[in-house]
Amino acid sequence: MRNRKLMTLAAGATAMLMSAGAAMAQADRSDWPKSFTVGTASQGGTYFTYGSGWANLVAKELGITGSAEVTGGPMQNMALVSTGDLPFGMTTMGPARESMDGENPIAPGVPLTNACAMFPMYTTPFSVTVLSSSGINSIADIKPGARIGFGPAGSSSDTYFPKMLEELGVKFDRRNGGWSDLAGQLQDGLIDVVAFAAGVPVPAVSQLEVQTDINIIPFTEQEQAKIVKAFPVAAQEIPAGTYKSLTEPARSVSMWNFAIANCDLPESFVYETVKTVMGDHDRMVGIHKAATETTVANADKNTFMPWHPGAAKWFNENGANISPDLVHKK
């Protein structure tokens, strides 16, 4: 009888602890939003695939409604997240720097400083794609007046690639559009070149090469050096096999991408979001191969954007060394 009473008391105590724990967990979420949206870019690009993937992952694991939204890409995401119109987004570091300095074309003259770094995503290589039938095998082969698609207006590609090609002496007719749309225009002969800036493999390119023969045009060593000297990019190679059409490495340049959060979001919410994404690397790579670079070691690729306190806390707990000076302070 005594043992039975002890078991009953123990069970009651356990139930009370579980109830208290549940109440505490619920209290911890009291200031969380009921849902969230991740600003990505156009469909057919890496941002949309990658962003939709981590939005769905976080929504499932945290039990909160989440989704991705098609946007104009990094510049617009910096504006939408900084103003609080979107809680989360993704950006490349060049547009991030320009936005913080008040040089975002969406809000000219207004420093957008309320978007915080959340986690490193991957590098964005800049690559040129043409139809094999075009006869274009190098940047120098692009004829004056060629119709070149640079992605959505305000995207990283649209911001930097035209300037890069101008630096290399290419004269062109500038076109904009979503990546899937531009790939379709290339296949239909409505444009001559697509200048992609997106994590590889770019879904639109992978789909395009299933339907027709394409060439991925590399930079020469001299062209690469000239671009690296003139723009905030680093030298990189797109590995052979990234696309079926790419049988050897293609010389390129690249820029880092980071997920961003509105700096006013609750610390615990951002902490749990980062923990979910960074804590399941294999699942992220399954969403998109570019996520092989979504690692703690790459946190140091952000040297200027303030970290959200929740993100900084998780990274510092997991081997990073984020300086307190680089953490957003309210």
Results as ranks from 00 to 15, higher is better:
residue 1 M to N: 06
residue 2 R to H: 15
residue 5 K to I: 14
residue 6 L to E: 14
residue 7 M to E: 13
residue 7 M to N: 05
residue 12 G to A: 04
residue 14 T to Q: 06
residue 15 A to F: 08
residue 17 L to A: 15
residue 18 M to L: 13
residue 19 S to L: 15
residue 20 A to S: 12
residue 25 A to F: 15
residue 31 D to V: 03
residue 31 D to E: 13
residue 32 W to Q: 01
residue 33 P to I: 06
residue 33 P to L: 05
residue 34 K to H: 13
residue 38 V to S: 04
residue 41 A to V: 02
residue 42 S to E: 15
residue 47 Y to M: 05
residue 48 F to Q: 10
residue 49 T to W: 01
residue 49 T to M: 03
residue 52 S to F: 03
residue 59 A to E: 11
residue 64 I to D: 13
residue 64 I to V: 14
residue 67 S to E: 15
residue 68 A to Y: 03
residue 73 G to I: 07
residue 73 G to D: 08
residue 74 P to F: 05
residue 81 V to N: 10
residue 82 S to N: 06
residue 86 L to C: 08
residue 87 P to S: 07
residue 87 P to D: 10
residue 88 F to K: 02
residue 90 M to Y: 09
residue 95 P to V: 05
residue 97 R to P: 00
residue 102 G to Q: 14
residue 104 N to Y: 06
residue 105 P to H: 09
residue 109 G to S: 08
residue 118 M to W: 07
residue 122 Y to K: 01
residue 122 Y to N: 11
residue 127 S to R: 04
residue 129 T to W: 07
residue 139 I to N: 03
residue 140 A to S: 15
residue 142 I to L: 08
residue 143 K to H: 15
residue 145 G to E: 09
residue 145 G to R: 07
residue 146 A to H: 05
residue 148 I to T: 08
residue 149 G to D: 07
residue 150 F to V: 01
residue 155 S to I: 02
residue 159 T to P: 08
residue 167 E to I: 00
residue 169 G to V: 05
residue 172 F to H: 06
residue 174 R to W: 08
residue 174 R to T: 11
residue 175 R to P: 04
residue 176 N to Y: 14
residue 180 S to A: 09
residue 189 G to N: 11
residue 192 D to A: 09
residue 192 D to N: 13
residue 199 G to R: 02
residue 199 G to K: 02
residue 201 P to Q: 05
residue 201 P to V: 01
residue 203 P to L: 00
residue 203 P to T: 00
residue 205 V to E: 03
residue 210 V to K: 09
residue 211 Q to E: 13
residue 213 D to F: 00
residue 213 D to A: 00
residue 214 I to Y: 06
residue 225 A to F: 01
residue 226 K to V: 07
residue 226 K to P: 10
residue 229 K to V: 12
residue 231 F to K: 12
residue 231 F to S: 11
residue 232 P to C: 11
residue 237 E to R: 07
residue 238 I to P: 04
residue 242 T to G: 02
residue 243 Y to T: 03
residue 244 K to L: 05
residue 247 T to A: 14
residue 251 R to A: 05
residue 252 S to K: 02
residue 254 S to E: 08
residue 256 W to H: 06
residue 256 W to N: 04
residue 257 N to L: 01
residue 260 I to Q: 01
residue 261 A to L: 04
residue 261 A to N: 06
residue 262 N to V: 08
residue 265 L to V: 12
residue 266 P to N: 13
residue 267 E to W: 01
residue 270 V to C: 04
residue 274 V to S: 12
residue 275 K to G: 10
residue 276 T to N: 02
residue 280 D to R: 13
residue 281 H to N: 10
residue 284 M to Q: 06
residue 284 M to L: 15
residue 284 M to K: 03
residue 287 I to S: 11
residue 290 A to T: 12
residue 291 A to C: 06
residue 292 T to F: 07
residue 292 T to G: 02
residue 292 T to H: 12
residue 296 V to K: 04
residue 304 F to C: 00
residue 304 F to H: 02
residue 313 K to P: 13
residue 315 F to V: 11
residue 315 F to C: 10
residue 318 N to A: 04
residue 319 G to R: 10
residue 320 A to W: 12
residue 322 I to E: 10
residue 323 S to H: 09
residue 323 S to K: 13
residue 324 P to S: 12
